[in-house]
Design a protein around this nucleic acid. Structure first.
Lengths: 347, 347
DNA sequence: GTGAAAGCGCTAACAC
DNA sequence: GTGTTAGCGCTTTCAC
């Protein structure tokens, strides 16, 4: 008896069939018992559960997925536009990813992460969706792929995108009202006395373009000269250098043609702060500076950064909530989150 | 003819069988053609490929995985010990994750991400491995799960862990030589004139404990008093407060019992710098400070942070390389990476 | 309440 | 070179 128990314990029980044999029932019954579904005799169920525990049995998700035509996995894809490679180590996306992981887990889904370079692989989105590995997809950032995403959205419902909302777009998006954020930033700079505004960062990506446009709105409304774009890359290494050059060009012995800078992200703002200091410019006295995101770094710069806050946790919740609703067959509207001005000491 | 072509184009071709019908061949041939394997007539292959492209056909990975008993997916799991919840938004892990994603993609693998709370789910690792969804697993951080990982490693080869290396351990680990890093830090502080050292951070996690021990080694060797642990949590909110309290306790009107601080991470060091400034202490004149990791923030503090660099990209490469070798049946040793002292202006 | 049987979509022998 | 066949491990009718 003891010997036979020992022997049993050594049997590799990898499949539901193995377990069925041990329990003296059919595979179907084991499946039902483990799924906690339909009617199964309580004693049978308990016996099966005990056996499963004892042998550390876990049903194969692949097989289950294949049969049920759903995987319990949500794909999360980060498209990296041309020069944006580095952007991913960007704290904003990474923080969002962390919240997404938690949120998906909470709802019983796993997360499959993929970073893609659309330039090298035009098929990036269809390939992911068509893989059969995921029940739905969350795209983090539209990058320069707005059109591709629109096309895909026409034929595929189980997708939600983090990004900027555009009048009449067809894909479901969750994101901050960037244009409003841009307005808040410009208004604050101007309220502090700035008259010659600049926008620091790449104006290519839609989200940044909207922030820039928001600032432009305010400048126009107030009858100020238009906002000067100071274009940079996003990776810290290149950006620092580029910022230094821009500053050198606009703050000369002859005069200063900028007195308020709106940076596309806090990361850029922090770098800018460093360069301003290096060039002997005082913030906020000589120049006012305002960032975007409200990442942890915004509290730690000296002086601490005034910025426009995005609610990342709310964003993650929104993405998951909308996606799950879509999986359930609902049609969902996009979700635009309000930005919030966080006043610290740079503007 | 045109009509029939149109009709064909409209047929949903989801399975290899659909495609086979269209191409007028058997499913087996389609499978072979698409896999680019074995002998298939060139014309047949081209025809099939063309059809596949035209209809946007992509073979179902679940089915393929089930049949071939491999999924092409690597699991990446981040265990969150007791109070370490916040740590994940920690830039270090997130940066490592980014590099891992790139590295795995390069090798044709997908990445399934899971954050787990071992306290709530003792079974976290076995469950992931047993799910049948992944070919192997990378554990990011040992957290307080060293023993659990050791146990699992005895029965499962396809695992590599980021963390600290311990004499005689059984799981394959990749990580920086933390103890050596601690020594480098302490030596630098002492070379700068510090005699009363403190270690800032939680000494619980193994990696931090090793850093602390390294500093302790040097203090002992030099005949200095032992290094004072200033225990904090890792989440920025709580840490700031705790740091302020520690500083207030050790820098009083009566005197200063600390003149050199070694912070467990750059994040903590940056917060500490802020608090030191708030309490009117000059760095490095009154206190020397040194961090660990060399995250981007280390360059941006004022003054810029002296720190001990971990080569994160090399770490990611090592993790993937070792894991793939293990999948291939090799037995692999652990990989211990050398830390590097980066001298800036705080020590 | 449980068993038997038919697949989910794909791959890999094995024939021819 | 290509077709045929037998599953991978699971779920889910359909009987009983």
């Amino acid at each position: 008896m003891a010997a036979s128990e020992e022997q049993e314990a050594r049997i590799q029980v990898r499949t539901i069939t193995d377990l069925a044999r041990l329990a003296g029932v059919s595979p179907g019954t084991v499946s039902r018992a483990l799924a906690g579904k339909s009617l199964v005799n309580t004693k049978t169920r308990e016996k099966i559960e005990a056996l499963a525990r004892e042998h550390g049995f876990r049903p194969n998700q692949m097989a289950s997925g294949l049969r049920r035509q759903k995987t319990g996995v949500i794909g999360v894809v980060i498209p990296l536009g041309h020069d944006i490679r580095q952007q991913i180590s960007d704290s904003f996306f990474m923080t969002l990813l962390g919240f997404l992981a938690d949120e998906l887990t909470t709802h019983g889904y796993d997360l499959m992460l993929r970073r893609v370079v659309p330039d090298d692989d035009a098929d990036w989105l269809d390939r992911f969706i068509g893989s059969g590995m995921i029940d739905g997809v969350i795209v983090i950032g539209q990058s320069d792929q707005f059109d591709r995403i629109e096309e895909v959205a026409d034929g595929y419902r189980s997708m939600v995108v983090w990004g900027n909302h555009q009048e009449g777009q067809r894909h479901c998006v969750v994101g901050t009202d960037n244009r409003l954020g841009g307005r808040l930033a410009a208004e604050r700079l101007i309220a502090g006395g700035a008259r010659k505004l600049a926008f620091l960062g790449d104006t290519g990506p839609m989200e940044f373009a909207a922030r820039f446009a928001g600032a432009q709105d305010v400048a126009a409304r107030m009858g100020l000269p238009s906002v000067l774009p100071l274009v940079t890359h996003l990776s810290p290494d290149r950006a620092s250098e580029e910022i230094a050059k821009h500053l050198a060009a606009h703050f000369t012995a002859q005069g200063r043609d900028i007195d308020g800078i709106f940076a596309a992200t806090d990361t850029l703002a922090a770098l800018c702060l460093t360069e301003l200091r290096a060039q002997g410019l005082a913030v906020p006295d000589d120049v006012k500076l305002i960032g975007f995101d409200d990442l942890p770094i915004a509290r730690q710069t000296i002086p601490p950064l005034t910025t426009v806050r995005q609610d990342i946790a709310a964003g993650a919740r929104g993405l998951v909530d909308l996606l799950l609703r879509r999986l359930g067959g609902e049609t969902t509207e996009s979700l635009v989150l309000p930005p919030e001005l966080v006043v610290r000491e740079t503007a």
